[in-house]
Design a protein around this nucleic acid. Structure first.
Lengths: 342, 342
DNA sequence: CTGTTAGCGCATTCAC
DNA sequence: GTGAATGCGCTAACAG
């Protein structure tokens, strides 16, 4: 249509130079006219190139949050199976900064074409990103983002709103007169647990706007189950008017199981994430509601945005994608299983 | 690898016959061995064939439910833009059986390769499906399914559970002592409004299990706004202890607007679907919660399943897809906008 | 029954 | 600065 050959059009499409102004203009006019949109799949086979994606996130335990993200990543590479993608997972222990450093140190050795980062430690991540920026390797953040970096996309949740909504829900689910507790996890060291911090802020904010409810705050530990059980039981002994508990991380099942084991009932629990333990508890009624943040979709879209970037060399207009907050009760749980995976 | 040419492999893949048992076995062994999975996109370009998809649903008014479904359909044909798909919309008035018959009658004239059906009238739809079955034209149901038909897939919601959940939510959102009303829409004629019927059953069921709440039931009309306003106001005058209203269709905004206009407040409303009017009301606080059923995803997946069927000639294992029920408040609303579309 | 050939949209290489 | 030729995974038509 523009009176030039396919070769020239291709040079223009990919900014490979060696094109006269005249040709460029003619072709660009036609491209616009016909609304040309290149085909990512045929493009990929024609390129006959393998892409190396390095994924560095906290360890995925079976049935937990990061496994769902990995599932989403897996589904994406299936959906785009015509694009040859090699994934290398570099997982670290989110409670151990040395493990994170070790993982990050091997990122570059893997010659990534792109990197998916699930960040926990701020400084280390910033350093990694600086390296990636220097080598012009694109990266995306998943679950949370880190300041002072230049990702091509981030997939996060508005944790503040999660916390606020948690407050609103738990307030509506217990009798007006009862007290409400917020349980957080004891954190060790300096890791970036900004997710819970933000949730906590939002939670507090809700009850600041809606006073006349007494809020009790408590921490429990992930490390010592026996110790933990004692602490939790003591808490409820001392705070017998508490009828609602918001566990502002994904460990609601721990509290639920302690209460069940000790025959304490009549307490409404709300927590986060469709982990297999939480699913079990929501089924048996010991957890009443879960807030979820589409981990599968995060993983899926992370890969999708990378593929589009690698093939089209173009950033999306929108860099920051904030995931929906799904509210899940016993009743609507079954229908999230299939669609969790996009 | 099997010592035969591409042509033979292709004949085997598509069951086109003229293949010796020996070749078939050899090839099938290799296919299994390498985990062969055909590429739907290159397959499509090679076929250089246009597919005609006829979509027959109730009229899509701007900002309402069926428009969201159409958006999902649109996104799917974008995502699969390498497969040439021609969509023809045959919309009918869901309150007019003649209009539906007229639409259905033109389905076959359009020579569809596949049909997407949003059904309202049972008998008419069954007849249409019989015709399609006879001509071996595949079809999928969207929003609701009809008995005695053979769709290759259906995308629906568990309306009974929606109703049950509506009861549970509204109960928790109003003071224990207050009465609760359920509003439905007056239906004319014999059309299939099984969606609201099922929702109503679920709603009633919840309060049967959880007694000590008085439930008032009321109908309002879509046809006469002034009349309607009178009826609604009268209802609240006569039932002054009602503090919670469940509108078990997508018209919660109508009740919300009437209450606002007449300065009645302190009433919690819950309704269905992210229509633009409901979005407005949830933003200004006059509707407190909405239950939604992923209409975009329904549309998207309807097209996707058709494409896979047309290209692979294989039914999916799972025919009936039940969508998640999303619970939306003012706070988590903003993050559903982007992801409504898959 | 089978292999060869041509061509889909796309990208690269290599002469000119 | 440009076009022709080649090849990617895939399918269909055709010749044997």
């Amino acid at each position: 249509m523009a009176g030039v050959s396919a070769g020239t059009v291709d040079r223009i499409l990919h900014n490979r130079g060696n094109v006269s102004e005249a040709s460029r203009e003619a072709v660009e006019r036609v491209l616009k006219e016909v609304g040309y949109k290149s085909n990512i799949h045929t493009s990929a086979i024609s390129l006959r190139r393998e892409y190396n994606i390095v994924i560095t996130t906290p360890m995925a335990s079976p049935g937990e949050y990061w496994e769902s993200i990995q599932n989403g990543i897996g589904h994406a590479i299936q959906e785009y199976s015509d694009i040859s993608i090699i994934c290398r997972y570099l997982n670290y222990n989110q409670f151990d900064i040395y493990s994170c450093r070790a993982a990050y140190n091997t990122v570059m050795e893997n010659n990534p074409d792109a990197v998916i980062i699930g960040a926990t430690f701020i400084t280390e991540t910033q350093e990694l990103c600086r390296e990636l920026d220097n080598s012009r390797i694109p990266y995306v953040f998943i679950d949370s983002s880190i300041e002072g970096t230049n990702p091509i996309a981030t997939f996060t949740t508005d944790q503040y709103t999660c916390g606020y909504l948690t407050g609103k829900l738990i307030r509506s689910m217990v009798p007006d007169s009862s007290e409400i507790a917020m349980f957080g996890v004891k954190r060790i060291g300096n890791q970036h647990s900004s997710n819970s911090t933000e949730r906590r802020k939002g939670f507090i904010k809700y009850f600041a706007e809606t006073p006349q409810t007494t809020i009790k705050e408590a921490l429990f530990s992930m490390l010592n189950p026996e110790e933990n059980e004692k602490t939790v039981l003591e808490f409820f002994r001392e705070n017998s008017r508490v009828r609602g508990v918001a566990v502002i991380n994904s460990r609601g099942n721990i509290i639920a199981d302690i209460l069940k084991k000790n025959g304490i009932d009549g307490i409404t629990i709300i927590s986060f994430d469709l982990t297999s333990n939480n699913i079990r508890c929501i089924r048996d009624g010991s957890i009443s509601a879960l807030l979820c943040q589409r981990p599968e979709l995060q993983g899926f879209n992370a890969v999708k945005s990378i593929i589009h970037y690698l093939l089209y060399k173009k950033k999306e207009e929108q860099v920051h994608h904030i995931m929906p907050i799904d509210i899940i009760f016993k009743e609507n749980l079954p229908y999230y299983r299939e669609f969790m995976e996009v």
